[in-house]
Amino acid sequence: MTLTAERTREPAADRRGRPKKSRQGRETLLLMLPALIPVLIFSVGPLLYGIYLAFTDARSGRNSVTSFVGLSNFGDLLTDGDFWASFRIGLIWAVSVTVLQFVAALGLALLLNENLRFRAFTRVLAMVPWAMPPVVIGLMWRLVYHPNAGILNSTLQGAGLLDHNVDWLNDFSIALPAVIVVGIWTGMPQTTVVLLAGLQGVPRELHEAGHVDGATTWRRFWSITLPQLRPVIVTITSLDFVWNINQFGLVYVLTQGGPGGQTRLPMLFAYEEAFRYGFFGYAATLGVAIVIVVLAVLGLYIGRQMREVS
């Protein structure tokens, strides 16, 4: 929207000078208004309100008085052991899901890029997890992980790999890995599709030239496919990271952050603070802190990738 506006404005300004430009600018603004109002009301407004809340001691309740407390929420956050534990879990979750998801999706994308039989069918099949809402995925996997009636326990026992039922989602050490597996499964389709699109954009001639020069398949993948895919990889992994660290619905349905907070992602922590214990101000602080962290991590990551490219 802004791009088109810029483009139509500039030549006019060059030819006729200032007054015309400002009138046209006003008209553009007027035309944009219908689209701008919902954005202002439903996105920018709540965002600013959330940031404002982060600097208050807002609590739930009819007789609570909200006052401005400056940075004290941020101070509390820095010394809150539960927050750091949750933050650590959030990072483990986001990094491992993003990385493993990327590796698995790249493999799948390479496979689907080959000229296999039933290719159209398998491509559709790979999209299935994407078509499901997170709550349904959570419920489905809860059944898979069920200690007594779950298909996972009965399969593993049938294969002789396990001699007793494991309570996957309630075991202190297994719960987080079990949830991560679901996270990977859920996010694979979009990563696969994006990588597949990228793979199809890799010029065939490069591969042919490599082939003629006697490069092995592995060498061609490493020196041709991967560098060609780089922009796509940077984009999809950074998007995945943001999605994953802000993940809520899936884990809420699977474990509600249990057992004993072992899967309490930052967003679950914020949700509990706000809607279970009623500390709205503190929860808003958490939200702001996560935004800062995500921006910092992305800034570093994308900045480094860009520098390497140039």
């Binding site: 739930s60 009819r62 007789n63 609570s64 009623g278």
Partner: peptide, 8 residues
């Protein structure tokens, strides 16, 4: 207890 003290 919590709801009462918050005036709900």
């Amino acid at each position: 207890a919590g709801f009462a003290s918050r005036g709900y």
